[in-house]
Design a protein around this nucleic acid. Structure first.
Length: 290
DNA sequence: CAAGTGCCTTTATC
DNA sequence: AGATAAAGGCACT
């Protein structure tokens, strides 16, 4: 099946799937394969066209964020030469509409890990506790359900090399399995309320909450601060903070809650209601071209 | 090749 | 409030 891409609404499949927002896509030749929900999706991009297999147009357009008016969003966040450089390099990078449950567990796993290791952990979880699905003679695995993770033994989770994250994943899975969160409701509530709810789960701090809000709960003002974005701020946006604040966070590797809040709030105020888009462009640019 | 460093941080404790 | 330490183990240099 083919989707015609409108030149006035840019899309960059490689940047979108490589930028670190999602961890379960792999490229085989020119095709991207990824398990989304119960099935394996297969996608490739040619000049002005997206070719998809094993899914329907409506679902894929929503998942890939193709309904976002990207031209308008990019013009709104184009505040200075640094973000403009990142946008020029990766025009068409879009924020996916990921499944909140998978996103939540993924980012609990993502703390203090590099992307390769995160992919490995999530693959381990899926192979051991998900269901096998096939496409083109490749094996894939669905992401484990809340029930599966809630009922998994400590030993099974330990084998997935989650480390100290295993107990957070397990506790959080049990809470989700007991219906202590309603993701569809969180999509409709505002940023602050949705964030406060996520912060109740073990293993979810400010940064993880902001990632879940941005990547799966339609909160595009969320501006997650990780080590890479902190570097970007220290390199290009120092002037927006006091000298003593900057020297304080330059010295230490970790941020206090208050310091995190200050950096994240800067992002939200400076870039506006699509700050999260700015964050992704800056993050991907910093990681790949610096 | 071994060993050190860093990793899209959170939590517990003082 | 703020500082400090601890918590897997993999990937990269």
């Amino acid at each position: 099946m083919k989707i015609k891409l409108n030149p006035s609404s840019p899309f960059n499949l490689d940047a979108t799937l490589c930028c670190g927002q999602t961890f379960r896509w792999d490229k085989q030749g020119e095709w991207w394969y990824g398990v989304v929900g119960e099935s394996v999706l297969k996608i490739r991009q040619t000049e002005n066209c997206l070719e998809i297999e094993n899914t329907d147009t409506h679902f894929v357009k929503n998942y890939l964020g193709l309904h976002d008016d990207l031209t308008s969003i990019l013009s709104q966040i184009s505040k200075d030469k640094h973000i403009k450089q990142a946008i020029a390099t990766f025009t068409g990078l879009r924020i996916l509409r990921q499944d909140p449950w998978e996103c939540l567990i993924s980012y609990i796993c993502a703390t203090y890990k590099n992307i390769a290791a995160i992919k490995r952990m999530l693959l381990n979880l899926s192979c051991r506790l998900g269901d096998k699905v096939w496409l083109d003679s490749y094996d894939f695995y669905t992401f484990p359900t809340p029930e599966k993770l809630a009922k998994a033994s400590a030993g099974e989770l330990a084998k997935c090399s989650l480390g100290y994250r295993a107990k957070y994943v397990h506790e959080t899975a049990k809470m989700v399995y007991e219906n202590l969160v309603d993701f569809e409701r969180l999509k409709k509530t505002d940023y602050d309320e949705a964030r406060a709810e996520l912060l109740r789960f073990p293993g979810i701090g400010q940064k993880v909450a902001d990632c879940i809000l941005l990547f799966s709960l339609d909160k595009f003002e969320a501006f997650p601060i990780d080590v890479w974005i902190k570097r970007v701020i220290l390199r290009h946006y120092k002037s927006h903070f006091s000298a003593e604040f900057i020297s304080k966070i330059e010295d230490k590797q970790s941020l206090t809650n208050r310091e995190y809040e200050k950096l994240s709030l800067f992002g939200r105020k400076y870039f506006g209601k699509f700050a999260g888009y700015a964050q992704e462009y800056l993050y991907h640019y910093e990681r790949t071209l610096h």
